[in-house]
Amino acid sequence: MEINIFPDQSTSNEIPSGQETNPNNSEIQIHQLPCSIYHNGRANIENYFVVNPIFQEEPLYETFFRGRRLVGRCVMLDDKHEGCIFKESSHTLNKPSSLTTNEEIEETRSWETSHKFHSFMVWEHDTVPLPSNNRLLSSLDWLEIANVVSS
Rank of each mutant, 00 (worst) to 15 (best):
E107R: 13
T113A: 08
Q56Y: 05
L33N: 02
G67M: 10
V51Y: 06
L60P: 01
G67C: 14
P34M: 10
H81A: 04
E88G: 03
E124P: 02
D79I: 01
R42D: 11
H31E: 05
F117I: 00
R68E: 11
T100D: 09
I85F: 01
Y48T: 15
N40A: 13
H81G: 01
T127H: 04
S119I: 03
D79N: 05
T100P: 00
I45M: 12
I30G: 00
V75D: 01
A43T: 13
R66K: 13
V75G: 00
Q29I: 06
S98I: 07
E62R: 13
H31Y: 11
H39L: 15
M121P: 02
C74Y: 01
M76I: 06
H31A: 06
P34F: 07
T101D: 10
T100M: 05
T100S: 14
G72S: 06
R66E: 11
F120D: 03
S119G: 03
Y38V: 13
S89Q: 10
Y38F: 14
S90D: 07
D126K: 08
E112V: 08
F117R: 00
E58N: 09
D126V: 03
F65C: 13
F64L: 02
R68W: 08
E124L: 03
C35K: 04
K116I: 02
E107V: 15
E57D: 15
Y61M: 02
H91R: 09
N52D: 14
W123A: 02
H39Q: 12
C35G: 06
S97T: 13
I28D: 00
G67I: 14
K87I: 04
C74Q: 10
F117N: 00
W111E: 12
T113P: 04
G41Q: 14
G41V: 11
Y61E: 03
L77D: 02
L60S: 08
E57I: 10
E106P: 01
Q32R: 11
I54E: 14
T63N: 06
H115D: 05
P96Y: 04
M76R: 09
N47A: 09
I54Q: 05
I28V: 15
T63Q: 12
D79Y: 04
S97R: 15
D79R: 05
F86T: 03
E58L: 15
K87H: 05
C84S: 03
L99V: 07
C84P: 00
K95H: 14
Y38G: 12
F120E: 00
I30S: 01
K80R: 14
H125M: 09
I105E: 08
S110K: 12
F64G: 01
F86Y: 08
N44Q: 13
N52I: 10
N40G: 11
I28H: 02
E107C: 05
W111S: 08
L70V: 07
P59K: 12
E103L: 11
E57P: 04
F64H: 12
E104Q: 15
N40R: 12
S98A: 12
T63G: 08
R69H: 03
K87F: 01
K87W: 02
F120G: 00
F86Q: 01
Q29S: 10
S114Q: 11
P53L: 13
N52S: 15
